[in-house]
């Protein structure tokens, strides 16, 4: 509650300021890393990937669209060789991280926003609202996700934004279920009732108390959602439903498959993007694994 914090009356101000400044110094940081090495491994991998995505134009040795001699084997100039059009695969790999990460994050954000809103409402309000929302969630859960995504992606024009929307709008159900069950637990705690007795409104309680006590579940669910959104994107792209203008890792495998990479056994073409997908998904899973271990709250996931 930022408004309250700003007017904090602090009995031992020195202690508090110490606590704040110390979170920046290196000794404390090392301690936190040692306390949860798995999580920090995940975060470190992720930081590197985001760095690669942002600085792709600077660190890529070639323009990924520039053509040259096709089907080259890996060499000092072309670390992962070239594809059928003579484009540098290593540069393409770096650029593809942008699409994959953007699709993963945005689709996850959409699915989390929908899932959390539905779960929060369904968990907090009783009666027909819950029946309606959870009924809807169950219907969505019953829809076989991938086939529907394939159909939608095939009918919509192949663009990155459509893929983001399709994944985001179909991937929220499990979040809604998890959030709802956590909210059901939280709403029975007495501080909810006593805050209501102080005269606070439902929206205040939902925001400051229910959501605050659900956030760990939401964080964990978010990182899993990014991972599964990236996998879904890779599946769609591999099937040729991706955005040809924004190449992603899944799409690289698709091209490797359709343009002779597999047939000619050019492992440097199809293997690296697959590994990148695995590493990224692994990073997110590592981040979640740790918080699952140190928090009783996340047992639900």
């Amino acid at each position: 509650m930022p408004r309250i914090q700003s007017r904090l009356y602090m009995p031992n101000v020195e202690n508090m300021s110490e606590k704040w400044s110390s979170s920046l110094d290196i000794g404390k940081f090392r301690k936190r890393v040692c306390a949860s090495p798995i999580k920090f491994t995940g975060i470190a991998i992720l930081v590197v990937l985001v760095f690669i995505a942002i600085t792709a134009p600077l660190i890529a040795p070639h323009d990924p669209e520039k053509t040259g001699i096709p089907y080259q084997s890996p060499s000092a100039d072309h670390l992962l060789g070239t594809n059928d059009l003579g484009q540098d695969i290593f540069s393409e790999l770096l650029y593809a991280s942008r699409t994959s990460l953007v699709v993963g994050f945005l689709a996850a954000i959409i699915s989390i926003v929908i899932g959390v809103s539905v779960g929060l409402m369904a968990g907090y309000y009783k009666g027909w609202i819950r029946e309606l929302l959870m009924g809807m969630t169950d219907v969505f859960l019953l829809i076989p996700g991938l086939p529907l995504m394939i159909i939608l992606a095939a009918y919509l024009s192949p663009s990155m934004w459509n893929i983001i929307l399709v994944i985001g709008l179909l991937w929220w159900c499990s979040t809604a279920r998890v959030v709802q069950s956590r909210v059901l637990q939280v709403r029975e705690m007495q501080f909810i009732e006593s805050t209501r007795a102080l005269g606070y409104s439902d929206s205040y309680i939902l925001h400051k108390h229910v959501l605050a006590n659900t956030k760990e579940v939401i964080y964990a669910k978010f990182s899993l959602a990014v991972a599964s959104a990236m996998l879904a994107e890779a599946s769609l792209s591999f099937l040729g439903l991706g955005d040809p203008l924004n190449i992603s890792w899944g799409e690289m495998i698709h091209f490797a498959f359709t343009r002779g990479g597999f047939a000619n056994d050019m492992w440097w073409w199809y293997l690296p993007p697959g590994l990148m997908i695995c590493i990224t998904v692994l990073a997110f899973v590592l981040i979640t694994m740790e918080s699952r271990k140190d928090s009783r709250l996340v047992e639900l996931i």
């Binding site: 904090l8 009356y9 007495q190 501080f191 006593s194 805050t195 108390h209 605050a212």
Partner: peptide, 11 residues
């Protein structure tokens, strides 16, 4: 469970 575990007593 009388007070929200997310906040300090003061808050």
């Amino acid at each position: 469970t009388a007070l929200d575990p997310q906040y300090t007593l003061l808050e």
